[in-house]
């Protein structure tokens, strides 16, 4: 499978990149400083609240999510558009590589690259948290790290899929930032719009219910990340609340996997059909 060879080359190349180094430093700092911040902020803002492992993990998730999605954009927006634009894609395609191999290789290679700083953040957080957070549950940190990597890769692949839609890295940057702003900042407008439309172009009263909105509301990767983490932590401690399907663990996992599949698939279909 040539995709694996492309991925290997991609990782070899990325290993020496300044971007990776910067991400390792950034996530190293985030991981190490997280436990300090959590204990200090808690002591300042809610001194009566006890320090808990769960509270710590959920704090970290809120703290790190923005950095994860922005790093995914940084790492992914030029993945394919940049190669096409600069001409290193030409070199890849002069060899017996299918365009599919290029897209798959990028997905695998960049995801592996991204997993490195995320896993390091998890380790740093564990080391410092072990000292500062009494009753820290290692299994909760492992779940946190795995779910964060899933979220990071899902967001990264969403961005790489967008990158495959265009030959210009400038445009790819616009798509990536546009997707971020829409999904993570303006999504409520979309949800409200859907309620309005579903209700026959008027807003329902207090008692009004909608079918689409709860699903739509949980579609952004950031929301799915939060839901997935919360629900899996609840599940391992045996206190899983009965969540309605749209905010359940399964729907959240489905959403993250969905973004990771649909966007690259669309990108590939486009990339496969265009003149390079």
């Amino acid at each position: 499978m040539n995709a694996v060879i492309v991925a290997k080359k991609e990782f070899q190349d990325a290993r020496r990149s300044k971007t990776l180094l910067a991400l390792i430093v950034l996530f190293g700092i985030l991981g190490v400083s997280g436990p300090f911040l959590y204990t200090k902020l808690l002591a300042m803002q809610a001194p009566t609240e006890p320090i808990t492992s769960r509270g710590f993990v959920m704090f970290m998730a809120e703290f790190i999510a923005l950095f994860v999605s922005l790093s995914a954009i940084l790492l992914g927006y030029k993945a394919i558009a940049g190669e096409t634009e600069s001409g290193s894609g030409t070199l890849l395609l002069s060899l017996p590589n299918h365009r599919r191999d290029i897209v798959l290789g990028k997905l695998i290679g960049r995801a592996t690259t991204f997993a490195v700083p995320l896993a390091l953040a998890g380790l740093g957080m564990f080391a410092v948290g072990w000292v500062l957070i009494p009753g820290l549950e290692p299994v909760e940190l492992v779940v946190f790290t795995l779910v964060t990597v899933l979220f990071g890769v899902s967001f990264l692949w969403l961005i790489i899929g967008l990158s495959a839609m265009t030959k210009h890295s400038g445009r790819a940057a616009t798509y990536a930032l546009g997707a971020f702003v829409l999904l993570e900042m303006l999504w409520n407008i979309v949800v409200i719009g859907s309620v309005y439309v579903e209700n026959g172009f008027s807003f329902p009263g207090e008692a009004g219910t909608t079918v689409i909105a709860p699903y739509l509301q949980n579609l952004p990767p950031g929301t799915a990340y939060h839901n997935l983490l919360e629900q899996s932590l609840a599940m391992i401690s045996g206190t899983a609340p009965v969540a309605p399907f749209p905010s359940s663990l399964w729907f959240a996992a489905l959403v993250l996997v969905g973004w990771a599949v649909v966007s690259p698939l669309g990108g590939y279909l486009r990339f496969d059909s265009i003149d390079l």
């Binding site: 080359k9 990149s17 002069s94 060899l95």
Partner: peptide, 26 residues
């Protein structure tokens, strides 16, 4: 075997790694 127009090398890989990559691909 191709020398294409307007290519760019992988600047962080060595010459040997480029050739090895071509060998693995083929």
């Amino acid at each position: 075997g191709v020398i294409p127009d307007g290519y760019t090398l992988f600047s962080r890989l060595t010459g040997r790694q480029h050739v090895q990559f071509a060998m693995e691909t083929k």
